[in-house]
Design a protein around this nucleic acid. Structure first.
Length: 267
DNA sequence: CGACTTTGACCAGCGC
DNA sequence: GCGCTGGTCAAAGTCG
């Protein structure tokens, strides 16, 4: 049972990340004004401890993993609300609770991303060490993660995510590159690629409904900010997600977890 | 050999 | 100004 909960937690974690990433990308597509999202480089962020407190609770995006209780504003204040928000308050803060084996001392939260640990600290309010991670999947990804055991329940890991990934979820990257490269997205020929500047979807609208083997036409004439294009993207992404059985099962688990939280974690 | 982890030192913000 | 604290750096160690 504990094992099942653990697996479910990990599945939910990945699902939430997928969903969040998808949301982010949709938002990016909808607002085509700042393709680079204006995220400063990691080097630029370093030594900017002023910015460290620029977390905006209004953007909190708490997530529930394994049916565990979500974060509260009181605890959030202790974690993330040291200072009022600044111009950099766009960075999103989200928290994830992960049920783990009590015997498992690793401060590891599997969410599908690649993380590089850059520090560990014992904080005053919690005897458990807090681990600091940076996203290493993309060199320019500004996302940071803090992982610490819950004070109340040592078997629960609390992961705090800061910022937004400026790259797709690794599983999505694989899916895109694997299944959609040079293939069709739905019924429209297209290709997807990941570059340093971000994900790129190329539509070949000149080949409607026909096979286009070996023909990859970049279509610069297509206005990617047009409502039609955006609508198409959303529909295709939703369609792809809905076709994914693992996503559906994970979603069902998430919903049941919301409704019957005690069926997942006996707390 | 490159990527990752560990860990002590350092820095900046904050309260007194 | 000083001490405390959280967050980050970076050298050394570890691993595949």
């Amino acid at each position: 049972m504990v094992e099942e909960n653990k697996k479910l937690s990990e599945m939910l974690m990945v699902m939430c990340e997928n969903y969040n990433t998808l949301q982010n990308h949709l938002m990016d597509l909808m607002s085509t004004k700042n393709p680079n999202k204006g995220s400063p480089s990691a080097a630029a962020i370093s030594k900017k401890r002023k910015a460290a407190g620029s977390e905006d609770n209004t953007n909190n995006n708490d997530r529930v993993i394994g049916g565990y209780a979500e974060s509260s504003s009181s605890e959030e204040a202790d974690w993330c609300n040291k200072k009022p928000s600044t111009e950099e308050s766009k960075s999103k803060i989200s928290r994830v609770y992960v049920q783990t084996e009590p015997s498992d001392n690793r401060l590891v939260v599997k969410d599908g991303y690649q993380w590089r640990k850059y520090g560990q600290k014992v904080t005053r309010d919690n005897p458990s060490p807090r681990a600091y991670f940076k996203c290493s999947f993309a060199p320019t990804c500004p996302v940071k993660k803090k992982v610490q055991r819950s004070v109340e329940d040592q078997s629960v890991l609390v992961a705090t995510y800061e910022g937004e990934h400026n790259h797709p979820h690794p599983s999505q990257t694989e899916a895109i590159l694997g299944s959609n490269r040079g293939a069709t997205l739905g019924s429209v020929p297209c290709s997807a690629s990941i570059s340093s500047s971000g994900p790129t979807i190329t539509l070949d609208l000149t080949q409607r409904g026909t096979t286009t083997h070996g023909v990859k036409r970049s279509s610069p004439e297509i206005d990617q900010s047009s409502p039609v294009f955006q609508q198409f993207l959303i529909e295709q992404m939703a369609s792809n997600l809905s076709k994914d059985p693992s996503f559906k099962s994970a979603l069902a688990a998430a919903i049941s977890g919301r409704i019957f939280p005690h069926s997942l974690v006996n707390k």
